[in-house]
Simulated scan of single mutants.
Amino acid sequence: MITIKDVAKEAGVSVATISRVLNNSPGVSDETRKMVLSVIKRLNYNPNLLGRNLRRMETKMILVLLPTISNPFYARIVKGIEDVAQKNGYGVMLCNTDSDVKRERMYLELLKNRLSDGVIFMAPEIDEGELNEIGEKFAAVQCCEYKEGANVSHVSIDNFKAAYKAVKHLIGLGHKDIGLISCKNNFLSTKQREEGYKKALIDFGIEFNPQYVRYGDYSFKSGFRATKSLLADADKITAIFAISDIMAIGAIKAANENGLKIPDDIAIVGFDNISFAPMYNPSLTTISQPKYDIGCTAMELLIKQIKERGDNKENIILEHELIIRESTVK
């Protein structure tokens, strides 16, 4: 295997000069630089990037922890993260935590052992205190989901306002008996979307009915089952707000099986605007999150922390949009 010493001997220069050329450092003439690069190419020399990065106390790798890789919602966010990472010379390690705190801690050992330069949490499972410890010692950003009291930067949307807007849309169409399909978890977004749903009802003089609430797990089947249950127990319901598009699509399937026409008999709104939302029949009215921009912004914040090595924390709330389609309006 060709080493840096072989390159230096062939080029007739010192190992230090080869190192300066590889690192694009000053102090090397253009003529020498061209000659060294020519020798590197001719000898097909591949520098030991791991060793070089360890000497610099960096790995050029970023840890991205997400609760599940099966949810298409995360795809565009990860694309944004990777695009910004690559432009800045970083690689990305995607780690599926399954919302398991032990698994999350296992992956965080990579960060603690300096095998990663920073971490992006899609939905942190560790508690606020543990998260603050990570944020004090390492570059860290929360993306989409975040712990409200943690002193760690986050990028998200205003989930309360988004849910409020979705339910207000249904009320504006004349619906008063509006079901909710939520999830039982510790995500802040879930709590905020439920609160937005309730506040919209209250503001328009509609009493919140706990019998109109069902819980899923973000899956198509859970949305289907929740809707079947709602339609069986609350036949007055004329609209459903689901806190995720996948559950909303399950709701459409259940409504169709019950012989209901959408949106004539029942209107359905989702959340996230995943790629399937406009393709389903009927196309799904939903809250659109700027997923790609969320990923880009999270990665930009992380790189800023890595380079500046400061304690400045930034919280960024990006805009959302209600996309009205056939599941609520013909």
Rank of each mutant, 00 (worst) to 15 (best):
residue 1 M to D: 11
residue 1 M to C: 07
residue 4 I to D: 07
residue 6 D to N: 15
residue 8 A to P: 14
residue 12 G to R: 11
residue 12 G to S: 13
residue 13 V to P: 04
residue 16 A to E: 10
residue 16 A to N: 11
residue 19 S to R: 10
residue 20 R to A: 00
residue 21 V to W: 06
residue 22 L to W: 09
residue 23 N to E: 08
residue 30 D to Q: 15
residue 35 M to G: 05
residue 35 M to A: 15
residue 36 V to G: 09
residue 41 K to L: 09
residue 42 R to I: 00
residue 43 L to T: 01
residue 46 N to E: 13
residue 49 L to Y: 14
residue 51 G to P: 14
residue 52 R to D: 00
residue 53 N to S: 14
residue 53 N to P: 14
residue 62 I to Y: 08
residue 64 V to S: 07
residue 64 V to A: 10
residue 69 I to R: 01
residue 73 F to T: 08
residue 73 F to W: 01
residue 76 R to I: 00
residue 77 I to W: 11
residue 82 E to P: 03
residue 84 V to T: 13
residue 86 Q to T: 15
residue 88 N to D: 07
residue 89 G to Q: 10
residue 89 G to T: 01
residue 93 M to D: 00
residue 94 L to R: 03
residue 98 D to H: 14
residue 102 K to E: 15
residue 104 E to T: 03
residue 105 R to S: 09
residue 107 Y to S: 02
residue 108 L to A: 04
residue 109 E to P: 04
residue 111 L to T: 10
residue 112 K to H: 11
residue 113 N to F: 04
residue 115 L to N: 13
residue 116 S to P: 02
residue 118 G to S: 01
residue 119 V to E: 02
residue 121 F to L: 01
residue 121 F to K: 00
residue 121 F to Y: 06
residue 123 A to T: 10
residue 123 A to H: 03
residue 124 P to H: 03
residue 124 P to Y: 04
residue 124 P to F: 01
residue 128 E to S: 08
residue 132 N to S: 01
residue 138 F to S: 02
residue 139 A to M: 05
residue 140 A to V: 08
residue 143 C to G: 01
residue 146 Y to G: 06
residue 149 G to H: 13
residue 152 V to M: 03
residue 153 S to H: 07
residue 153 S to Y: 08
residue 154 H to W: 15
residue 154 H to D: 05
residue 161 K to E: 15
residue 165 K to Q: 13
residue 167 V to C: 06
residue 169 H to G: 07
residue 171 I to C: 07
residue 173 L to E: 12
residue 175 H to T: 04
residue 175 H to Q: 07
residue 176 K to P: 01
residue 178 I to H: 11
residue 179 G to R: 05
residue 179 G to H: 05
residue 179 G to W: 04
residue 179 G to Y: 03
residue 181 I to H: 12
residue 183 C to T: 15
residue 184 K to T: 09
residue 192 Q to W: 05
residue 193 R to L: 05
residue 193 R to Q: 00
residue 194 E to K: 12
residue 195 E to S: 10
residue 200 A to G: 00
residue 200 A to N: 00
residue 201 L to P: 00
residue 205 G to L: 02
residue 208 F to H: 10
residue 209 N to M: 00
residue 210 P to N: 10
residue 211 Q to P: 02
residue 215 Y to I: 02
residue 217 D to H: 07
residue 218 Y to L: 09
residue 220 F to C: 02
residue 222 S to R: 04
residue 227 T to N: 01
residue 228 K to C: 05
residue 229 S to L: 01
residue 234 A to W: 05
residue 238 T to I: 06
residue 239 A to I: 10
residue 243 I to K: 14
residue 243 I to F: 14
residue 244 S to P: 12
residue 244 S to L: 12
residue 246 I to D: 04
residue 250 G to K: 02
residue 254 A to H: 03
residue 255 A to G: 00
residue 260 L to N: 04
residue 266 I to W: 13
residue 266 I to M: 07
residue 266 I to S: 08
residue 272 D to V: 04
residue 272 D to T: 08
residue 277 A to Q: 05
residue 278 P to M: 07
residue 279 M to A: 10
residue 281 N to C: 09
residue 290 P to G: 05
residue 291 K to V: 01
residue 294 I to N: 01
residue 299 M to L: 08
residue 299 M to Y: 05
residue 301 L to W: 08
residue 306 I to D: 06
residue 307 K to H: 12
residue 309 R to Y: 06
residue 313 K to E: 11
residue 314 E to N: 12
residue 316 I to K: 14
residue 317 I to K: 13
residue 320 H to M: 03
residue 321 E to F: 03
residue 323 I to S: 03
residue 323 I to H: 11
residue 327 S to C: 00
residue 330 K to H: 13
